[in-house]
């Protein structure tokens, strides 16, 4: 019997079942048309957006309004982020704007330390997580690949913990697989690998390490052929998920023949 790969294996977040464990962000696409094609090819049911000033008529483009319409039309759920925030105070305000504008209490909490590394500021992140949870947000906490911090965020009430594979936009893959595995093994909320993904095998590895999903944007939107790359990631995430569930063989030092030695013909 042919197994339908995603049946009965939805990613459950806050009571919502997502059919795809690949979450594709909207950042970095040169055109809305190209973005739409890539989103559709990725099969994603949830995508990130940033909150920015509405382009007032005659003062630039109106891509903002069009992006939201495009996502609504394609029935892709929206996850507003707090990208560009350096303090908990800024993140709270941005999160409130996202909730009001997009009518969702889901927020991808991103509090970065500096523009050079774009790494999360752990202290501000903890403070913002606590405040947002208290205000009724479902916090998707973007964090360092630190098992201690990841657990702390979960204890503070984060709905999802999202450790980075590598710094945002680097495409370096998963720099510390051991930490990701450790984070997953101790978590009781979904763990979604976020940031640093470069190519399909990185996403497959994330799933093999036990992650519940993968979030990426640049790896698709800045690829030479975004639709093809989005398709690759769709398959990679499914492949990695199935492999994680299937129980891999143990690694061995020496070879182990899979063909029997008995019954060989004499020459």
């Amino acid at each position: 019997m042919t197994q339908t790969l995603t049946d009965n294996d939805a990613l459950l977040i806050d009571g919502v079942a997502l059919g795809s464990r690949l979450i594709m962000g909207t950042g970095g696409a040169p055109s809305l048309e190209g973005l739409e094609a890539a989103l559709v090819a990725s099969g994603t049911e949830l995508t990130t957006v940033a909150m920015r000033r509405y382009a007032v008529h005659g003062e630039g483009n109106t891509a903002g309004a069009n992006l939201f319409d495009l996502l609504v039309q394609n029935r892709i759920r929206v996850l507003p982020n707090t990208a560009g925030c350096f303090t908990a105070r800024e993140a709270l305000m941005t999160a409130e704007l996202g909730r009001e504008a997009l009518e969702t209490d889901w927020v991808k909490l991103e509090v970065i330390a500096d523009e050079h590394t774009l790494l999360p500021d752990a202290v501000e992140l903890v403070e913002a997580t606590e405040s947002l949870v208290n205000r009724g947000f479902k916090v998707f906490a973007y964090t360092n690949d630190d098992p201690v911090l990841a657990l702390r965020l979960e204890q503070l009430g984060a709905a999802v913990v999202m450790p980075l594979g590598a710094p945002i936009g680097t495409g370096l893959g998963i720099l510390n697989p051991h930490n990701i595995e450790l984070i997953v093994s101790r978590a009781s909320v979904p763990i979604i690998l976020d940031a640093g993904i470069g190519t399909a095998s990185d996403a497959a590895l994330a799933m093999e390490l036990g992650c519940d999903g993968v979030l990426l944007a640049s790896a698709v939107t800045r690829a030479q052929d975004p639709v093809r790359m989005a398709t690759a990631f769709r398959h990679a995430v499914i492949g990695g998920r199935l492999a994680a569930q299937a129980g891999r063989i143990p690694m061995r030092t020496h070879a182990l023949a899979s063909s029997a030695m008995e019954g060989r013909a004499d020459f």
């Binding site: 950042g27 940033a50 909150m51 000033r53 309004a65 939201f68 990208a83 704007l97 504008a101 944007a217």
Partner: peptide, 10 residues
Amino acid sequence: IEIVTAVQGG
């Protein structure tokens, strides 16, 4: 007054 909306972002 600030009027904001969704734009592309990771």
